[in-house]
Design a protein around this nucleic acid. Structure first.
Lengths: 264, 264
DNA sequence: CTGACTTTGTGCAAACGTTCACAAGGGCGT
DNA sequence: ACGCCCTTGTGAACGTTTGCACAAAGTCAG
């Protein structure tokens, strides 16, 4: 999906599919660390991340041998190694273009800052928005793209504009020196080779869900595994680490360290 | 990614990878239709969608033989067939839980309605937001989840809450009868088998970009194909369908029907 | 120090996805 | 009606990803 010459792990190593899962593992590791857990087995970590444990071990083995046989992985050490591999030990200035609802949501999203992504600037071309404060940032004019990118050595750009402006913004980002782009606009961006584009399309995901929902509706509806689910839910609500002193939260469980249902 | 018993195209047909691309083709087809193009070859459509043409043909062949050899595909007919396969010819009521910036962005997103997704309700548990108007919808209390789902026969739920509430919201949606969930919260949801979950994680995409950016920075930087790019850009800006009467847009090109750079 | 037990790391085979290359098939000019 | 040319649809080769199953390697009790 927008790799240029990808022999997957031809030259240096890590398969693309693995790279895509590392952030998930990292999130699970942070959650474990927050709960004060120092060591974790591949089985447990895999459950937290919602993947098969063999897959997790193979994935981690691409980074090196950071586990201890018979014991598991040291959470803190693994956090460091995964972060390092993903390039999160350095600071990544990010410019967000488009300060509509989506741009605003992105600017306010805590998950950015906590992973080393610093918002270098929030830009918009609507003069009614330029100058306002959003999440501690003053919205600047989209005319400043080149200035911002060069001044702050930005290499990652986020496009959160309406579709018609997206290609133009993209061109300007690229011309200014940005080589990684995260595109939220529902169009296919045209970029020179050497520039990495990833897209997130809200409606595409919904359409995929609709496809499966329709499949289910047409085929016999096998009822959403009633018994099994009751059981799992009970386990999650009640049996939260017997000797654990977790404070009861007002709404909802903890930070999501349970396994995704994978079924058979 | 959260399939239950997925032999991919074991029983009825279409591989998962193909399903994930159909919405992209559909978008490209709509863009072509808007430009008044009645017929398109696999080569052109593939370019518009940013994929290999052989892949496109194989993907479409899973739906049936809707092309004409020597000619191409009829745009309108293909739009219909793809829509039908994706289940977009029916109306899908969707409930959005969480009316923060993200929920607001989703509610305002035009790409929903235009694909048959109707917002059944917008819910939040913050009493300061409940009752306000967002995109023609009055925000209702999150306590109404069960009522809304049952009254309007909602089968798709969108979770746009902060992470701590997500699992609880998910449980309630599922208990109320929702079987498809789109999750924006950065946690792995636990659901019974039979429920389909897709996740969109903004920071994960950024982390993947960071990984590649770091790779590029470490290896020799081969300069983003200067010459080739200038050429492509010129072609895009100037050579817009010679005899085409497209009105000049204030900002940016058209709806993105150009090829993604794929490189070698 | 030894031996039982646990968990990692990995060889291998099967499943899945992508791409090439071309035969089959249909339009169109003559 | 014929044959040329263009484009689809697909068989086959190749690369990637997954998951099993197990040997290697470490811990820990006695």
């Amino acid at each position: 999906m927008s790799r240029r010459s990808a022999p997957a792990h031809g030259s240096h190593g890590i398969p693309e599919a693995t790279v895509a899962r590392l952030p998930v593992y990292l999130r699970a590791l942070y959650a474990l660390a927050d709960r004060g857990i120092a060591t974790v087995s591949s089985e447990e970590l895999a459950a937290s991340a919602g993947v098969n444990s063999a897959k997790l071990r193979k994935d981690l083995s691409h980074l090196g041998s950071y586990g201890t046989r018979g014991v598991g992985y040291d959470v803190e050490y693994l956090v460091y190694q995964v972060s390092r591999e993903l390039g999160l030990t350095q600071d990544w200035p990010v410019v967000i273009v488009g300060a509509g609802n989506l741009g605003r949501a992105l600017a306010n999203y805590g998950g950015f800052a906590s992973r080393g992504f610093r918002i270098a600037a929030l830009l918009d071309c609507d003069s009614g928005v330029v100058g306002t404060q959003i999440a501690r940032h003053t919205v600047r004019s989209a005319a400043d793209i080149e200035a911002v990118v060069q001044e702050q050595a930005v290499s990652i750009g986020v496009i959160a504009t309406p579709a018609p402006s997206a290609q133009d913004v993209c061109d300007r980002l690229v011309a200014a020196g940005v080589t990684s782009i995260l595109n939220f606009a529902p169009i296919v961006l045209s970029v020179p080779s050497g520039v990495d584009v990833r897209k997130v399309d809200l409606s595409i995901e919904l359409q995929i869900l609709a496809f499966h929902a329709q499949r289910r509706a047409l085929a016999g509806v096998p009822s959403p595994g009633e018994r099994e689910w009751q059981e799992r839910r009970a386990r999650r609500t009640g049996g939260r680490e017997p000797a654990e002193t977790g404070p009861p939260l007002a709404l909802g469980g903890d930070t999501g360290v349970e396994a995704q249902a994978v079924g058979t």
